[in-house]
Design a protein around this nucleic acid. Structure first.
Lengths: 233, 233
DNA sequence: GCTAAGATTTCGGTGTGCCGAAAACTGGTC
DNA sequence: GACCAGTTTTCGGCACACCGAAATCTTAGC
């Protein structure tokens, strides 16, 4: 019961892997995410299983038990509340909060966390649009589609941006794309061109949107397409 | 460079021991304060010495080097700022902050700590009256005498109360004694009576103060006499 | 100065989480 | 159905901070 925080990290990563895609995580991916050797992960996963937090088919994937999921959601709640708090109260930018939250999520007491939750007015999502699990472990996934899968000509509002890469976050912010930004999907430019979006829900008329780019259109890279979720405004 | 926090705890305790009394700390006292076996302390102290944080005369006392003192003051600054912050921002009571601060002092980044410092208006003392070291390691000790050593009939203002024992803090608060409380020292009642103080700087006249107790006088225990510092109001 | 009580250090050992190398297993290919 | 590449597990080992027991040192009392 001493260095609990290692267990918390494993569980959090295992859970996170399935949050936006269905496949359960394999030991090698887990090792890569944690920055550890595969052999270390095998050992630790055995301990997680012994504690009833995970199940592990030999030579196969790692899955959380109900108890493990509960712990993961507690940690996710902590992480996302802390990120939100840093942005709201201490003027952190959304690309700067992750590392600090990574440490603090293991250190704050439940009491302090609840006080912070109240101070923030019980927010339901963090600065990247990720849902903050409720105290009872409830989590409501925001509806939305990956920008890559959005249909041409459609408009939508940004509801989530993956926090995986801080540099992408800074780039997008510089381009004017943050949470709740309205945008219109122009689509892929012909002859292998980039993927274009226009800021604003009503920018340009349908004809120009179907016809081509204007100087105001943004050419987003593949990484952005895989990171931005939009939903009907 | 991983579990730095153990080193930080040792250094903090070593420093704290000399903050309000001159004697350097011995390994056994250090072990008691940390709740560890003496043998563990011997080992760790050797490592502190190897890192240039402490000097250790064999079979004798442990002292901090300039570098060790610097680290201790950084930790003390963290601890006391966090305590102040918990009280001011999150409605903790002064007897509840210690354990939370004990954990957080190892987890907050310098950046966040500075932001908190600013939010609090760069306070110079914590909720118990302990001075908060400045960013550059400067610390200004509040002037004052231990209540035990205060002369009879004198009046003063409470400038510090040791945070060693939360129960004492709660008791004193219930009796009406907190930081900046003015009080008059009546003195020790005759025939082995308790040590009496009166709330307020002007309560009663000199005669009654010299003569004896009134119902409003407080009879403080020995622990309180060793824990409360007063200075001219 | 001697001794004994008490403090301190030394010594062997523990648990945790990590590693690299080697062995064992998987799934796909021919 | 045998092989092979890649993954996973096993194995021996390491660093860290801790422990109790035994050895060593200090110091107070006489």
């Amino acid at each position: 019961m001493k260095t609990q925080s290692v267990v918390e990290d494993y569980v959090k990563v295992i859970y996170s892997h399935t949050e936006w895609q269905p496949e359960p995580i394999t030991p090698s991916v887990l090792a890569a995410r944690l920055g550890l050797a595969a052999s270390s992960v095998t050992e630790m996963v055995k301990k997680l299983a012994a504690q009833g937090l995970a199940t592990h088919v030999k030579y196969g994937a790692v899955t959380l038990t109900a108890q493990g999921t509960e712990l993961a959601l507690r940690m996710l709640r902590r992480h996302r509340l802390i990120e939100t708090w840093l942005v709201e109260q201490y003027a952190y930018r959304w690309d700067e909060v992750h590392d600090e939250a990574e440490v603090l999520e293991h250190a704050l007491s439940d009491r302090l966390l609840d006080a912070i939750d109240e101070q923030l007015g019980f927010p339901s999502r963090d600065p990247h649009g990720d849902p903050i699990p409720a105290r009872d472990g409830t989590i409501t996934r925001p509806v939305g589609v990956l920008l890559r899968d959005a249909s041409e000509g459609s408009t939508g509002r940004v509801v989530r941006i993956s926090d995986r890469d801080p540099l992408l976050l800074r780039h997008l912010e510089a381009e004017g794309i943050t949470l709740d930004t309205d945008l219109t999907v122009i689509g892929r430019a012909p002859f292998g061109g980039g993927f274009l979006v226009r800021l604003g829900a009503h920018a340009g008329d349908a004809t120009s949107a179907a016809t081509g780019a204007t100087p105001a259109d943004l050419d987003l890279g593949d990484q952005a397409l895989e990171s931005i979720w939009i939903a009907a405004a």
